[in-house]
Amino acid sequence: MSSKTSLRAVIAVPYAWLAVFFLLPFALVLAIALGTNDPDSVPPVALGFSLENFARLFTDKLYVAAWLSSLRIAAVSTLGCLLLGYPMAYAIARATPARRPLLLMLVVLPFWTSFLIRVYAWIGLLSENGMLNQFLRWSGLSDHPGTILGTEWAVHLGIIYAYLPFMVLPLYATLEKLDVSLLEAASDLGAKPIAAFLTVTLPLSLPGIVAGCLLVFIPAVGEFVIPDLLGGTRTLMIGKVLWDEFFTNSDWPLASAVAICLLVLLVGPIALFQRQQAKSLERAE
């Protein structure tokens, strides 16, 4: 085999796989989203060309509320992740080089355990008679503590908890490369530590902030497991709407329309993430 043909094969095989199993399905989702629900046929879809499903998603109050609360919950949780993750990444990047691998491993380890089980761990903590409330009663901090499980607070906690490694890693990667002499220069020139942080460290770590926030925000908007297990029935999120329309109501066209809208909504952030990724690899070369 000539090297040119074999290189072509190396390109073609993953390309074809992704085209068939990743790209083509989106065309099918769009086709189904334009159809209507037909409970009598298998699968329960009548093909056609109607924008009714999309119209419902943007006029029905329930769906509009689900879109808005998904965006709000994802944004607030991303901010929470950043506020917790930035100082963590900073402290790891400033630790002695010998200690860094261990500190990083401790951040990554939870990511390697089951996502489902990590979310589950919060049920026992946050339920009405859960460990948090037991602690509050035992310590006398509160006699009648409220229940966090089943509220939006629990969803925020769950997202911050589950996605924290995705925030810390890209932040660490930029903070680690940061040239300390720049900070020394700033302080030699009379900048206070806070001023040096705001004018030197923060702007230079911006690529890490953007990458980390996108890695948390994009999947959080479409999150299903966390609102389902921790958010109770009152928390509306669009990923849960898609799931319920599909599995509970067997309304495939409406679920497909939700998927298309979610994709359109996230295409900007995803493209931004890809550009960042490409840029950081170029810099590495």
Binding site: L28, V29, I218, V221, G222, W243, S256, L262, L266
Partner: peptide
Amino acid sequence: PEVVMGIS
């Protein structure tokens, strides 16, 4: 989002 990949 995984729900999107799942349904597709």
